[in-house]
Amino acid sequence: MEKLHFDIQINAEPEKVWSVLWDDFSFRQWTSAFREGSFYQGNLKENEIIKFLDPQNNGMFSKIVKLVPNEEITFQHLGEIYNGVETPQNFESGTENYILTENENTTHLTVEIQTSEEFKSFFEENFPNALSNVKHLSENQF
Results as ranks from 00 to 15, higher is better:
Phe34Gly: 12
Phe6Ser: 01
Phe123Tyr: 12
Asn129Asp: 09
Thr31Met: 07
Asp54Val: 04
Leu109Tyr: 05
Ile49Asn: 00
Lys16Glu: 00
Gln29Glu: 11
Lys51Arg: 10
Glu92Leu: 03
Asp24Gln: 07
Glu118Val: 13
Ser132Val: 03
Asp7Gln: 06
Ile64Met: 04
Glu48Ser: 09
Leu67Gln: 06
Glu102Ser: 11
Arg28Asn: 10
Trp30Ile: 01
Leu100Lys: 09
Glu46Pro: 09
Gly37Lys: 12
Leu44Lys: 09
Asn47Glu: 07
Gly42Asp: 04
Gln76Arg: 14
Ser93Glu: 14
Phe27Arg: 12
Gly37Phe: 12
Ser138Phe: 01
Asn129Val: 09
Phe123Leu: 08
Asn126Ile: 07
Gln89Pro: 08
Val17Leu: 00
Leu44Thr: 10
Leu100Glu: 07
Phe34Glu: 10
Tyr98Thr: 04
Glu15Met: 02
Ser138Glu: 00
Ser19Gly: 02
Gln56Leu: 03
Glu139Asp: 08
Phe6Asn: 02
Gly84Asp: 15
Asn70Trp: 01
Asn43Met: 09
Asn90Trp: 13
Ile10Asp: 00
Leu131Asp: 05
Leu21Ile: 02
Arg35Ile: 13
Thr110Gly: 13
Thr31Gly: 11
Gln41Ser: 14
Thr101Val: 12
Gly79Thr: 12
Asn140Pro: 05
Ser121Ile: 12
Asn105Leu: 13
Ser62Leu: 01
Glu86Arg: 14
Glu104Ile: 11
Asp23Met: 05
Phe25Tyr: 06
Gln9Pro: 01
Glu71Cys: 02
Lys66Gln: 04
Glu15Cys: 02
Glu71Tyr: 03
Asn103Arg: 13
Asn58His: 07
Glu46Trp: 09
Gln56Thr: 03
Ile49Pro: 00
Phe123Gly: 09
Arg35Gly: 15
Ile49Trp: 01
Pro128Ala: 01
Glu118Gly: 11
Asn43Asp: 13
Thr110Arg: 14
Phe52Asn: 02
Val20Asp: 00
Thr110Lys: 15
Gln9Tyr: 00
Asn140His: 07
Glu46Lys: 15
Ser26Thr: 11
Thr31Gln: 11
Ile10Trp: 04
Glu71His: 06
Phe61Cys: 06
Glu2Cys: 11
Gln56Asp: 05
Asn126Arg: 13
Gln89Ser: 14
Ser19Tyr: 04
Ile113Tyr: 05
Ser26Tyr: 07
Leu44Gln: 07
Asn97Leu: 08
Phe127Leu: 06
Asn43Gly: 09
Ser138Asn: 04
Asn126Asp: 09
His108Asp: 11
Val111Tyr: 08
Glu124Ile: 08
Met1Cys: 03
Val68Arg: 07
Ser116Ala: 15
Ala33Phe: 03
Asn126Met: 06
Gly59Thr: 05
Phe91His: 10
Phe127Asp: 07
Lys135His: 09
Asn57Met: 04
His108Pro: 10
Thr110Asn: 15
Leu21His: 06
Ser116Arg: 15
Phe122Met: 10
His108Trp: 12
Val65Ala: 03
Ile64Ser: 01
Gln141His: 06
Gln89Ile: 13
Phe123Ile: 05
Leu109Gly: 07
Gln76His: 14
Ser62Ile: 01
Leu78Tyr: 08
Asn105Lys: 15
Thr107Val: 11
Tyr40Gln: 08
Ser116Pro: 11
Gly94Arg: 05
Gln56Cys: 00
Leu131Tyr: 06
Gln29Cys: 10
Lys3Met: 09
Ile49Ala: 01
Val134Cys: 06
Thr74Gly: 08
Thr95Gly: 02
Glu118His: 14
His77Cys: 02
Glu72Cys: 13
Glu86Ile: 10
Gln9Trp: 00
Glu48Gly: 08
Val65Ile: 10
